[in-house]
Design a protein around this nucleic acid. Structure first.
Lengths: 188, 188
DNA sequence: GAGGTTATTGACTGAACGGTCAATAATAAA
DNA sequence: TTTATTATTGACCGTTCAGTCAATAACCTC
């Protein structure tokens, strides 16, 4: 009955996400999104509505893919300490390689837009909660008391986000290593 | 010999800083800066050169004032634990009041610009170092070993930055309280 | 294959962007 | 008071911004 989409929506969202991830919301122009997606402006607007909606779609995609793979790791095999350590090691590793300057899109969105954008704040809040719950799950075998697991998980999320700020701020990698090690001191 | 400036440069920088602090670099327009400073565009360009230089001046001003008052607190009276706790309590308090959405300009600059802007990265790095050294100073009475104080200080900076991300991301205040409390577990 | 529906296309819009500049004003030194 | 120097002013610049739209194309259903 109607002409079908000629692009793979997931792939397009992935490409939009990569731009927002690397440059941030404000520094990203529609030209950037056009170039990255391979679509023309009209198609992007037809599919998403406006730039803001593209950003929100990118945040959801980040949650569904990158955050989810972190959650999968936390739900997978290994000790709680190993899993928590791996969170930080990923930060150290990607800093050391230095190929991609984006850091963590969740942190970026929190600082750039969440405070003044209801929709972004909701997305960010939801994702933070998901991450925290997954960390609680990883702690489950070691901490019986749920409140204690929750407070430790909140703290770990915080330290993790902090390490993302340090990494992007150009702090020495040793500071992130220190953060990881001190964090692990609190993980039984 | 020449016409003198008709404005108080410190006050102008303070007003520029407040705009960048609240809106970020990219979302701030020259119109915003003109409106906030009370100067005309030409005067701002005459005094600073370009928007980027205004931003760097704002970062330096933030270091000289807001960060410095944090450092003064850390150098002041009280136990190490009290001082560290106060860092986080400031975050909780300003989140609770909810009047100003800016958060911490140092964190904002780290995530928004440091990764792709040499000058900003240098400013940020310097300020992080200053903050870390001040925290080491606060720990000095309790931790003799300098390396140990350094690693704990790095960790505290990280957790503090993380709490800034949580706050702006709209996470519940309890998560910041948890971060503070867990942090204090490691402070002797 | 005709008709209905939606996707694609690229030219187009007005507004806002960062930045410039010639004219004017204000000052201190001579 | 003249002169040299710098600050202020506001009009102005070309560019880029996010977003629109009428024309065309592609597809599915009947």
């Amino acid at each position: 009955m109607a002409r079908p989409r000629q692009f793979d929506e997931e792939k397009v969202i992935e490409s939009l996400m990569n731009v927002f991830w690397e440059k941030g919301y404000e520094a990203t122009s529609m030209q950037d999104l056009v170039a990255a997606s391979g679509l023309l402006k009209g198609s992007l607007y037809g599919a998403f509505g406006d730039k803001h909606a593209m950003y929100v779609a990118a945040l959801r995609h980040y949650d569904r893919t990158r955050i989810q793979s972190g959650i999968d790791m936390l739900n997978g095999d290994g000790s709680a300490r190993q899993k928590i350590a791996r969170l930080f090691d990923n930060v150290i590793e990607s800093t050391r390689r230095g190929l991609f300057a984006g850091g963590c899109l969740l942190c970026n969105a929190s600082l750039e837009k969440a405070a003044t954008d209801r929709e972004v704040k909701n997305e960010v809040r939801t994702t933070i909660r998901r991450l925290k719950v997954a960390i609680m799950g990883a702690l489950e075998t070691r901490i019986a008391n749920e409140d204690e697991a929750a407070s430790l998980a909140a703290f770990i999320v915080s330290a993790y986000f902090g390490s993302r700020v340090l990494a992007k701020g150009g702090a020495p990698a040793a500071m992130i290593g220190d953060t990881r090690d001190r964090c692990l001191q609190l993980v039984p």
